Computed example of a mutant assay.
Amino acid sequence: MIPELVYRNSYIVGYRDVDFNNDLRLSSLFGYFQDTAIMNVEKLGIGVNTLSEKYSVSWVLTKILVEINRIPKWNEKITVETWPHRPKKFEFDRDFRVRDDNGNIIAAAISNWVLLDLKTREIRKSEIISGDYPPLEFTDERALEGRLRKLRPAGEPEVVYKRVLGYSDTDANGHINNAKYIDFIMDCFSIEEHKKHSVRSIQVNYLKEVFPGDTLILYRDVSGAGSNQVYIEGINEADQKPAFSAELKFD
């Protein structure tokens, strides 16, 4: 029996997941994406424990582009849909849609994942799990027409703040969780800026692992703000290499 391609998970937006406007925090949305994706691969038989025990690898998000039509509110019921695409040599594309209780699409995303070797911290070829990858009737339908791309600043980024990473930032892979970076990004804006503007799209490229004890230097380039676009990047202070880059567009 061929497994169902699209996996759905419903959430009630919790009080801990919203900001001062009772709007769902962007990091919480990324957490919903992550949880739904992990549940989906578990259902497909290629979940976290299976890959760790058989191949010593884990799923890691490398790029994601999210477009938001409307931010859900506290206590609102939403459904996150996700589906995988046919594996490439190293990469696994996965899409998401978020629907409100009336079935309206309020957000959508495309993403890219890889298999990270838990011992060497290197990326492994997708074929390593081909024997366990289930038979699926893959679809070419994408949640967004946009594409994942390299991100570059329009001008000269300036330092906003530094953050020492700790226990609360980590995940099961021992590195900084992808949703935590979203909080780092959103902290590059003042409360007043958040009151005036809402994020309508965000792309994040996860470039290099960082770990507890590392210090991230957050940079911001607002030279594209005239077109409602802001560039953010995080640099590891120890080696001066970028850990992530992001591009946000506001209303």
Results as ranks from 00 to 15, higher is better:
158 E>L: 04
80 V>L: 13
72 P>V: 06
135 P>E: 07
156 E>K: 09
97 R>I: 07
204 V>R: 01
133 Y>C: 07
126 S>Y: 03
4 E>H: 06
240 Q>T: 11
222 V>A: 15
111 S>H: 07
40 N>C: 12
35 D>F: 01
45 G>V: 00
203 Q>H: 05
140 D>L: 05
195 K>M: 15
88 K>F: 04
224 G>N: 11
205 N>F: 02
166 G>A: 04
44 L>E: 08
118 L>E: 11
220 R>I: 03
117 D>T: 10
175 H>Y: 13
187 D>Q: 13
245 S>K: 09
115 L>S: 10
186 M>G: 12
105 I>W: 01
92 F>Y: 12
155 G>I: 00
132 D>M: 02
14 G>A: 10
236 N>K: 14
140 D>E: 14
97 R>L: 10
72 P>H: 09
53 E>T: 10
153 P>I: 00
150 K>G: 13
103 G>R: 01
147 R>C: 06
15 Y>K: 12
143 A>L: 08
250 F>L: 13
222 V>L: 08
169 D>T: 03
237 E>K: 15
61 L>W: 03
109 A>F: 01
251 D>M: 04
166 G>L: 03
158 E>V: 10
101 D>M: 00
73 K>C: 06
134 P>N: 01
124 R>N: 06
159 V>L: 14
227 S>R: 15
138 F>V: 04
22 N>K: 15
239 D>G: 08
195 K>A: 15
34 Q>V: 01
131 G>H: 00
133 Y>E: 02
23 D>L: 07
62 T>V: 13
244 F>V: 03
76 E>K: 10
126 S>E: 03
119 K>G: 08
244 F>I: 02
67 E>N: 11
21 N>Q: 15
55 Y>V: 00
83 W>K: 03
77 K>N: 11
7 Y>D: 05
226 G>P: 02
249 K>G: 09
37 A>L: 01
125 K>G: 06
65 L>H: 08
84 P>D: 02
231 Y>G: 05
37 A>H: 05
140 D>Q: 12
26 L>D: 07
46 I>R: 02
39 M>V: 00
66 V>I: 14
159 V>N: 04
225 A>T: 10
93 D>W: 00
4 E>F: 06
227 S>A: 14
184 F>C: 06
113 W>L: 08
7 Y>I: 01
178 N>S: 09
110 I>D: 05
27 S>V: 02
181 Y>I: 01
147 R>F: 11
201 S>A: 09
191 I>N: 15
101 D>N: 08
98 V>E: 11
32 Y>C: 01
99 R>L: 12
132 D>R: 00
97 R>A: 05
84 P>T: 03
197 H>S: 12
47 G>Q: 04
88 K>C: 02
187 D>E: 14
190 S>T: 15
97 R>T: 04
209 E>P: 10
94 R>V: 04
170 T>W: 05
71 I>T: 15
202 I>N: 04
9 N>V: 01
44 L>H: 00
12 I>G: 10
86 R>Y: 09
150 K>N: 13
71 I>G: 11
95 D>I: 05
47 G>F: 07
92 F>G: 07
230 V>A: 14
179 A>L: 04
126 S>F: 06
161 Y>W: 08
